[in-house]
Design a protein around this nucleic acid. Structure first.
Lengths: 142, 142
DNA sequence: TATATTCTGAGACTCATTCTCAATAAGAAA
DNA sequence: TTTCTTATTGAGAATGAGTCTCAGAATATA
């Protein structure tokens, strides 16, 4: 069971009610460090005895993303992936275009160059997407 | 009129026929340096006397993207944008989350750090997406 | 407990993109 | 050229992720 407090805190902050369904979506997201799509979360919850609808999964994820408890990833293949942000530091992703494997990377040099670039334009950086599409070890044909 | 040779060359390479429709899509893409979506390209061609269907616009863009004559951009809002790559050097994008304005940036430091990161993982970099979502001058409320 | 309000689920809906397939056009051969 | 083969096209149907609707269920407040 994932820590329920941040959930209850976020719901209270948004003026929303605490429900079993919302708890189950949050629990399921925290159950792994994977990058799963909404359908996978939905099916995983359905495996348990609890009934949840797709609509509720999407609605709950929205609340979690809005409250920065979950990050939404757009890998460019038409369906969003989600990762919980419990104990996680900022990172970006390497994605294997063959097998879909996702790894994480952090680079302080890149982070500060980004700030620099935006500052030179005179703008304000809100967020960024930085994805390196690669072919991983296992997918390299020898 | 855009240079027709790269088009004919690409079509020949793919074993495809040269048609008025394909020419018109390529011409329209080369007509501006904007980042337009398929519907905008489609409507722009329709403005002229030539008849093209949406399906043909999408199909032709696919060929052009495959042959690196056009770059497909995913700004995360559910519809792809396209930019021609005639005389263009590599660049990434700054996107205003308020007005949608798109600017381009290049940073050699970031480019080489990317290669470094991928090399350290022992992978092979195929392509990357690097987008800085910002609030531009005009959208900053004073 | 009664009442008001929010949540939920099922399925309808949206919208970009892809697919289907009969009619048309391009290009090779004659 | 004309014929013949094969690719291309357009109209609209299909797809699929995600959103919306609304009546019934659950929760909170009086």
């Amino acid at each position: 069971m994932a820590s329920t407090d941040p959930l209850k805190r976020a719901l209270k902050k948004e003026g929303l009610r605490y429900t079993q369904q919302r708890q189950s979506v949050w629990d399921e997201l925290c159950a792994t460090d994977d990058h799963r799509d909404a359908e996978e979360i939905y099916l995983a919850i359905r495996q348990s005895e609890l009934h949840v609808s797709r609509a509720t999964v999407y609605r709950t994820i929205d609340v979690l993303v809005k409250n920065k408890m979950v990050r939404k990833l757009d890998l460019g293949d038409g369906r969003a992936r989600y990762e919980h942000k419990m104990n996680a530091t900022h990172h970006d992703h390497l994605i294997c275009i063959q097998c879909g494997k996702i790894e994480e990377f952090v680079d302080e040099v890149i982070e500060s160059r980004q700030d620099e670039i935006v500052k030179n334009f005179g703008y304000k950086l809100v967020r960024h997407i930085h994805q390196l599409f690669i072919i991983c070890d296992e997918c390299k044909t020898p």
